[in-house]
């Protein structure tokens, strides 16, 4: 795999079984501007009265419902700006998808 061109760093995280795990990875350019994100899908989630089968968090950590729900095994979304550019089973695969979409990979 070519070396990633973006600089990736941990974004939001959550405590999971006694350790903190990243819910998202943020890809920045050389100037430090965030231009891509890979986001872990969650769900089902109860929010208020509703049950969401699959959700992601947007840049402001608001719950975004995914319709239709993604197929099994597509647990990470690759996002550029507000756009979803691909899905992957694993975060590194999602990173490659995002970089490929940007043409930096």
């Amino acid at each position: 795999m070519p070396t990633p061109r973006l600089h990736w760093m941990r974004g939001r995280a959550e405590a999971e079984g006694g350790e903190t795990r990243a819910l998202e990875w943020i890809g920045c350019d050389d100037a430090g501007a965030a231009i891509a994100r890979v986001v872990r899908l969650q769900g089902p989630i109860h929010t208020g009265w509703r049950l969401y089968r699959a959700v992601a968090l947007d840049t402001e950590a608001r719950v975004v419902q995914l319709r239709p729900p993604p197929p099994a095994g597509a647990d990470w979304l690759a996002c550029i700006g507000g756009q979803v550019v691909g899905r992957a089973a694993l975060p590194l695969q999602a990173v490659r998808t995002a970089e490929a979409a940007l043409g930096t990979g």
Partner: peptide, 23 residues
Amino acid sequence: RQLLLDTALSVDDAAMEEYFEAG
């Protein structure tokens, strides 16, 4: 090997960071 890295590193955020740093 890439499949191994993709899968194995996903269990450890510090390992992911090491990978992003050095490739």
